[in-house]
Design a protein around this nucleic acid. Structure first.
Lengths: 315, 315
DNA sequence: GGGCAGGTTGCGGCAAACGCAATGCAGTTC
DNA sequence: GAACTGCATTGCGTTTGCCGCAACCTGCCC
C-alpha cells in the first residue's frame, strides 16, 4: 500500500472525478483509474462505486481516505520538524573538549551562539584527556572536538589549527613571573605541578624534554587543570599550560604566562577536529563556523582546508 | 517520500547493517544503499553517518525512524479496521424498503442477522413509495432495496423476485372474508380504502382495472399502510395489499386475505434490487444472502441470475 | 599491510507506471 | 429515442525507476 496510489484516490475523491484529479496531479486519467483499481485489488475490497459518472466512495473508501489524511498530517508534522532542523531552529550539537578549554572565552562563545540560535541544544562534553576527545570524535559520539595538539589519528580530520604555545604559568608574585622568556632548564629550580602523563600537554612536554636534554620533575600531577590552577594560585607551585587555559587569570594580572624557548612547545597548536569523511548536519556546521571564528580571534594561523560541508549531492 | 525507501532505512537501522537489512528484506545490498542515499537527497539532509562499518543514524535519521514507526502503527490500525470489514466484524448495511415490508418476518430476519453479525450496523430506510426506493438504490444511497413490483428502470438490477399476488384484505368478520377468491367486479359493493396512486400497489391495480374494465372507487387513500390496516381492522373497510404486508394479521386470523382473479395482480412480485453494475461490499453481500433466503421462505420462484459479487478481479 | 566485512557505484535487465488512443457507458439534449 | 457529451476503462507501446550482479572502495582487525 503506497502513498502514491492513495494520493490519486484522495485527489479523485476530493475533486469528485478522476479527470479533475488527473489534471490536478498532472497525469493521465488512465493512471488514476488504474491506480485506484489496483488499490482495490490489493486491499481486496471496493473503494469507489463503479459505473457512475462521478466518484463516490464506499464505506471502506471513506475509511481509507480518513486514514490517508491522518498519514498526511503525520508527514506534515515531520516536514515541519525537518524544516526546523534545516533552518537551525532546532538541532543538537555535541562537542568534546579538553578541560583546558573551559573558561570565559568558550562560555562567551556559547552564550552568543545560544542567543543567535535559541532552539539549538548544545552538549559540551569535557574529557579527561585528548585521547578521549579523539575517540569520541572518531566514533561519531560527538560532532566536533577541540584538542590540544591532537595525535595523527588517520580517522581524524583537522578542520582548524591555531598555534597555542605552552607557557610557564605562575602566580603574579612568583619569582619566575618577572622573566620575559624562559628556557626549560630555568624551570628546574622551582616547585612544579603538571598535568598527568595521559594528557596531551604532558606528552608534548616530554618531546621537548628529550630534545632539550632536560628532565623536569613535577611534585604534583593531576588530570584536573582546575586543581593545577589552584596550586599555582597559592604561589607555591608553577605549571606548564597553554595560555588559553589561563587567559582569564592572565588578563586579571593574577597569573603570569611566560613563553618557553623550545621549538617543540612553540609549535604546539589547538585543533578543531571531526571524523574524516563525516558530513556534518546544519547545526554542528554552524557551530563549526563559530568555533573557527573563536580560534581566529585567538589570533593565530587557521587551516581551513578540507572542511566537508553537508550537501545533498556527494562531494 | 515513499514507504518503500523508509522500510529499507528502518530495517538497516534496526539490524545495524545494510547487509543484514538486505538479507532480511530479501533484496540486494546495493538497493538498500541506494534507497537510503536517495532518501537523503530528497530530504536534503544526512540520515546515517557515512564512512563507517556499521550503520549509525544521525539526529535526523532517528527522527525519521520514529516518524516511520508512527506511520507503521497507523497502517496497522487501518489494516485491523479493514480486516474487521472483510471479516464482517464491522460494516454498514443500508436498506431501503416500502412500508409494506415492515412486519414480523423482516424483524425476525434482522434479529437473526444481528445475532450472527453483532458488529454490523443496519439501517432500514422506509420509503413512502417504491419510486423513492428505486431512486435511493440507483444513486448508491443504499445498498439494496425491497420493492413491490419495481419499475423497469434501466439503472436497476433485479437480484431476486418472488411472486406476491395482490389480495383483497379485510377483517375476519367482513362479508368478503368468506370467499375463496374474488373478481375485481365483486369488490365494488363494499367500502374500499387504498394506497395512494404514488404507491406501486396502486399503479398495479390501475393496470388490472383497465384490463378487466372495472373501476374501483376508494373512499380513503393513504401512503401509510399502517393507517389502511387500521381502517381494515375496524371492519368498515377492506383494501388491496400484498399478503406480505399483512402476514401477521392473517396468521392471527384477524384478517383474511382473498386472492383476486386477475393475471395482472397474480403476477405481481416482490423484488430485491440493487444498482446495475454495483459491486457490493462484504456486509451488504451477506445481507443479500439473508434477504434472498427470506424471500425464498416466502415460497415462490427466485430469480438469482446476474448477482454481482464483490471480488478483487473484475467480472 | 593483507585479509575481511561492509558500503558504494556502474551496468544491463525487467517490471511498474505512464501517455495516447480507442472503447464503453451514463446522463443530457434536441 | 438518437445523437451527443463527459467520464471511466482498457489495450498497447514507451519510459522510468528499481533491482541484481559484479567490481570497487573503505574501515577495521589481525
Amino acid at each position: 500500500m503506497q502513498d502514491l496510489n492513495l494520493r490519486y484516490l484522495y485527489e479523485a475523491a476530493k475533486l469528485g472525478s478522476m479527470r479533475a484529479a488527473a489534471d490536478s496531479l498532472g497525469v493521465a486519467v488512465s493512471s488514476v483509474s488504474r491506480q485506484i483499481s489496483q488499490l482495490e485489488s490489493e486491499l481486496g475490497i471496493g473503494l469507489i462505486e463503479h459505473g457512475r459518472r462521478n466518484i463516490k466512495l464506499t464505506e471502506t473508501g471513506v475509511l481509507l481516505i480518513e486514514h490517508f489524511s491522518e498519514q498526511l498530517r503525520l508527514n506534515e508534522a515531520f516536514d515541519a520538524r525537518l524544516s526546523d532542523i534545516k533552518g537551525l531552529r532546532t538541532g543538537r550539537i555535541h562537542l568534546a573538549i579538553g578541560e583546558g578549554f573551559i573558561g570565559q572565552p568558550l562560555s562567551n562563545l556559547l552564550i552568543r551562539f545560544n542567543a543567535k540560535h535559541p532552539g539549538l541544544f548544545i552538549d559540551v562534553h569535557m574529557s579527561a584527556s585528548s585521547n578521549e576527545v579523539v575517540r569520541l570524535v572518531a566514533e561519531d559520539d560527538v560532532h566536533l572536538g577541540l584538542v590540544f595538539q591532537s595525535s595523527e589519528d588517520p580517522r581524524i580530520r583537522v578542520l582548524a589549527s591555531v598555534r597555542q604555545p605552552l607557557c610557564a604559568v605562575m602566580n603574579a608574585g612568583h619569582p619566575l613571573a618577572a622573566h620575559k622568556s624562559l628556557k626549560l632548564a630555568d624551570l628546574k629550580s622551582h616547585r612544579l605541578c603538571l598535568p598527568e602523563p595521559s594528557l596531551r600537554t604532558r606528552q608534548l612536554l616530554r618531546t621537548a624534554e628529550s630534545i632539550e636534554g632536560v628532565s623536569l620533575q613535577p611534585s604534583v600531577t593531576s588530570n584536573s587543570i582546575t586543581l593545577l590552577k589552584s596550586l599555582v594560585q597559592s604561589g607555591e607551585f608553577f605549571t606548564l599550560l597553554p595560555v588559553l587555559a589561563v587567559s582569564k587569570e592572565v588578563e586579571n594580572r593574577q597569573f603570569a604566562a611566560v613563553p618557553i624557548v623550545s621549538s617543540a612547545l612553540q609549535d604546539a597548536a589547538v585543533q578543531l577536529i571531526c571524523r574524516l569523511g563525516r558530513r556534518l548536519p546544519p547545526a554542528p556546521l554552524r557551530m563549526l563556523d563559530a568555533l573557527t571564528a573563536y580560534l581566529e580571534a585567538s589570533g593565530a594561523t587557521i587551516d581551513l582546508s578540507g572542511i566537508v560541508k553537508e550537501t545533498p549531492t556527494k562531494p
